[in-house]
Design a protein around this nucleic acid. Structure first.
Lengths: 228, 228
DNA sequence: GCAATAGTGTCTTTCAGACACTATATC
DNA sequence: GATATAGTGTCTGAAAGACACTATTGC
């Protein structure tokens, strides 16, 4: 049965797979061999949505195919449907962000995939496009409208990090308060003061001290916490 | 050219056209003659997205067709794509909310369209489904997953009203601070204190006093403000 | 003891709620 | 003058930044 007699646009999901590396927010990008057509060498990994397939199933398929990831926290960001955004045809992209603890991503080879640092020029939650810096710190040439999408990614993260469990999805199950603060600083793009941050986090009641301490450091070890 | 050889889901836009009536947040609903098929008598007005058509064009078409509205503030909410959400087939719905000043909507006739009060059971930004009350204050039977969508609508409004221009889109160009406070109270579902609210609004710098005053009241008239 | 980081106590500023007050319109 | 609402001054308490302090580890 056809609900609409008109020719239909195609639907895809595109994923911003995010992690923290060296204190910086990074995104996994896929190389585009068709760079000349799609307008850039690198793009967010994505895939088409087939009839009868839930959006979440398409997301999980991309996570598994492109990053060998399972049980990752992901959430919908926004939908981009401008007919000109994909030169090959009308593709409506439902974008998601996926959050991974450091080290849970397979090492990108730099050819098919790379891990790019996310940088924005704007303060706070003002909004605007983002840049992606390659391993050599040079800006990468992004395909489609993916600079704008990555800008929205950062804006969403900044808007939600203070009243959601989003930061914990970028950390291992047990973590120090300093590591948690580094996540917040990387997302917000500014330094925070330690006492106020500790109070604020502990007052939420979402944290539980484990009684264990980090090891391997040269100096006083910090206590490990987990989510309550 | 076909980007995907598989059969594709259909894409639609669905609109939560909101306004304020009698101090309550209300949404415009369309009657469904096919209630037995779609699971409810009333639904958000919507329309299919055709190939090559921007999402915003589909939104404007629905606004014009269903509510004779132009130049209305609208923004994207979220995309719902569960294959079972529409019994007729796989329809991916990109939902929008549209905000209208009181009185700018044509009077719904109660048969094809009605203006339903939006009510939620949950406090703050906790989230959950919403109910829609008809003119007789009885809950309406909503089609599809529209109870869940309307819950997200309220959640989004509550999350954004304090740091966006969203409230002004629910007011005429010139308005009293009391009217602005009533908008906030209707969205947040709780009473606010007048002095704190006035200070907070005036301190944002987004308001400008006009020097004019409302008329027709039996008592001291309030000054009219506009957005800066 | 030294270096470096973990973690805390306290002061100050900011801001929202509570509450009481003054001001001004119609009747 | 009565009444009802517009608009303000002030107190209080909560929360965050600044800053200085103590605590604990490896060397």
């Amino acid at each position: 049965m056809s609900l609409s007699p008109h020719p239909r646009p195609t639907v895809a999901v595109d994923l911003a797979i995010l992690t923290l590396a060296d204190g910086h927010l990074c995104v996994l990008l896929a190389n585009r061999p068709d760079a000349a057509v799609v307008g850039g060498d690198w793009a967010l990994p994505g895939g088409f949505v087939h009839q009868g397939q839930p959006l979440t199933a398409a997301v999980e398929r991309v996570l598994n195919d492109k990053a060998r990831l399972r049980d990752v926290h992901f959430e919908q960001l926004a939908t981009f449907g401008d007919p000109g955004r994909d030169p090959r045809g009308h593709v409506i992209s439902v974008t998601y962000l996926a959050l991974c603890p450091p080290g849970s991503l397979p090492q990108p080879d730099g050819r098919d995939t790379c891990l790019a640092r996310l940088v924005v020029d704007w303060p706070g939650e003002k909004g605007g496009p983002a840049r992606a810096l390659g391993p050599d710190r040079q800006p990468l040439h992004l395909a489609f409208d993916h600079r704008a999408i990555l800008g929205e990614v950062v804006r969403r993260l900044r808007g939600k990090i203070n009243y959601s469990d989003l930061a914990f999805a970028l950390l291992p199950p047990r973590f120090t308060l300093r590591a948690l603060q580094e996540v917040h600083e990387a997302v917000l793009g500014r330094r925070l003061t330690k006492p106020a941050f500790r109070r604020r986090m502990l007052d939420t009641g979402r944290l539980r001290a484990t009684g264990d301490y980090e090891t391997g450091g040269a100096f006083r070890p910090a206590e490990l916490y987990k989510t309550a």
